[in-house]
């Protein structure tokens, strides 16, 4: 019983991480219908930039954990957002009219490019986040939860809420939904398509960076190739929840996280990811619209 409860907690924490990565995929996919493979790379880049911010601040004797965490999150989100802007400008915009295949390959190339650059800059060594939130996990009966785990869940919820509000309630959000329905018509109606699409990429990158920093804070170790698997799992979560759907990203993340942690009860761990892939294939083949349905626009 205690094990089951703990597994649910584990599933929620990792699910929130998947949800955050999924949010980045979903934003971009919802607007321009591109699986932005570079999202995994942006997530890794965010984790490394966040660590750099923490190290620089610590070198300047900033010691308050709250300040360090906020600075790492903000710094990583801004810098990675800028990187995502660059990615959109260089690797996506010129291919807007090209077949979808070109854009997919281009985003894959960006993923590998980011990985290679991080590897060169860090010498392939795994890097370690300092433990800013203290090591003592909270215990409640048989259940334990690390403070950073709670932080992940809260930030994921907060960012999801912010995105939902942004997409549904602001002028720019309305423009995004309009572009999702029909780019041409939205342009004719006076929406600055280029600007809004660029903004979508920037937001996707910033969300990925937030996930990267939180993973660094919670698990401690980051590696240059961390984005490959996490990117795939984040995408699975996005599809599971209904790609293009903002709350769906978080729902998909949580469902995937819970599924993964509950599977370990019955199946040897080495088959865990195979099950994830199988779920992904099954969902795509039999319910491609996911749990909450597809696309920002259809829910507007």
């Amino acid at each position: 019983m205690g094990t089951l409860a703990q597994q649910l907690v584990n599933g929620v924490v990792i699910g929130a991480v998947y949800g955050l990565i999924a949010l980045g995929y979903t934003m971009v996919y919802g607007i321009v219908r591109l699986i932005n493979f570079a999202q995994g790379g942006l997530y890794a880049a965010g984790a490394f930039i966040g660590l750099e911010v923490v190290e620089i601040l610590q070198a300047h004797r900033v010691e308050s954990p709250a300040l360090l965490i906020l600075a790492a999150l903000a710094g990583a989100m801004i810098a990675t957002g800028a990187l995502a802007f660059l990615v959109e400008r260089v690797a996506y915009r010129p291919l807007r009219r090209a077949p979808i295949l070109s854009a997919l390959v281009s985003s894959l190339a960006v993923l590998f490019l980011i990985e290679n650059v991080i590897q060169l800059l860090t010498g392939a060594q795994p890097q370690t986040y300092p433990s800013l939130l203290g090591l003592q996990p909270w215990t409640l009966g048989p259940i334990t939860l690390a403070p950073s785990g709670l932080l992940i869940v809260l930030v994921a919820l907060g960012l999801m809420g912010a995105m939902q509000w942004f997409v549904q309630r602001t002028r720019t959000g309305r423009a995004m939904r309009a572009i999702a329905v029909n780019q041409e018509v939205a342009g004719l109606m006076g929406v600055d398509v280029r600007r809004v699409v660029a903004l979508t990429f920037v937001m996707g990158g910033a969300l990925g960076a937030a996930a990267g920093v939180l993973v660094g804070l919670n698990y401690g170790t980051i590696t240059f190739n961390m984005g490959e698997l996490a990117g795939l799992e984040g995408f699975t979560a996005a599809v599971l929840g209904g790609i293009g759907n903002v709350p769906g990203a978080l729902v998909g993340g949580l469902v995937l996280g819970l599924l993964q942690s509950l599977i370990t009860i019955v199946l040897p761990n080495q088959w865990n990811e195979a099950v994830v892939f199988a779920v992904l294939i099954a969902v795509l083949a039999f319910r491609p619209r996911g749990i909450l349905g597809e696309r920002v626009a259809e829910r507007a």
């Binding site: 597994q7 996490a230 761990n269």
Partner: peptide, 11 residues
């Protein structure tokens, strides 16, 4: 290449 082993370790 993963970072989260909590489920396995709970078992």
């Amino acid at each position: 290449n993963l970072t989260d082993y909590t489920s396995l370790l709970t078992q």
